[in-house]
Simulated scan of single mutants.
Amino acid sequence: MSNSSSLSPQQTRTLRLSRNTVIVGGVLLFHGLGLWALQSGLLRRAVEVVVPAEILAEFITPAPPAPERPPVPPPPAPTPPVPTPPKPRPQPVERPRPAPAPQPLAINSPAPAVDNAPVVTAPAPAPVPAPQPAPAPPAPPAPPAPPAPPKMVQPSSTADYLNNAAPPYPAMSRRLGESGRVVVRVLIGPDGRAQEARIQRSSGFERLDQVALETARDRWRYKPGTRDGVAEAMWFNVPLNFVLE
């Protein structure tokens, strides 16, 4: 900085011109060398040398590894032949020799002695009686006959000695033309009196039903029902008809 500041403007201008001249000269020299090399064939040779190198580089790329083949198993070992056992030699069969016939021997046998002992005959065994068949077991007794069902007689309200009068016809029902049949179910005791009573079948009119219930329960007497001749309490249906004449 001190040198440049001490120079005069004329010297500074001259220095700059010299620098530019050097730079321009260098550029021109570089271009001239390039033209000379092109004309002389140096650049073409360099291209020819470089291009095959690239092609070779492309062809020299390593090929992919080949797939590994599975190892081939070794062939099985040959089986040794099984030795056949030797056949047994037939043994000679010895035939049995016939035994010599025995020679007859002379034997002096004494004469048989005569037995003069009396002969005793054993009595014949008595005949064994045949076994008699076992007597048949006695037949079981017949089961007793079931008892006869008890004889039942239903109660009655129509006996002559009862003197049961017909129920009174309500005046209002007669005036309105009400009529019908009422069935009263009555529990009749052993004394022939009604113990309970209820409407079994209604006539459709309250007044007629009420008169029939009071008549069968409070006014009438009955012949009680019996079981084997003994009087007992039984239910009995008493019908009462209300008919307009």
Rank of each mutant, 00 (worst) to 15 (best):
P88L: 14
Q91E: 12
Q91H: 05
V93W: 03
V93K: 02
V93Q: 09
R95P: 02
P100M: 04
A101T: 11
P102R: 06
I107C: 05
S109N: 08
P110C: 04
A111F: 03
P112H: 05
P112M: 11
P112Q: 12
V114C: 00
D115F: 00
D115G: 01
P118A: 13
A122R: 13
P123V: 07
A126K: 14
Q132W: 00
A134E: 08
A139S: 10
P141V: 08
P141M: 09
A142K: 14
A142L: 15
P144S: 15
P144G: 12
P147F: 02
P147D: 14
V153L: 14
T158Y: 01
A159S: 08
A159Y: 00
Y161L: 06
L162T: 03
A165E: 11
P167A: 12
P170C: 03
L176Q: 14
G177V: 05
S179F: 12
S179R: 15
V182Q: 02
V183F: 02
R185C: 02
G189S: 13
G192T: 07
G192I: 11
A194F: 05
A194L: 07
A197D: 07
R198C: 02
R198L: 07
R201M: 06
S203I: 05
E206C: 00
R207P: 09
Q210A: 13
A212D: 06
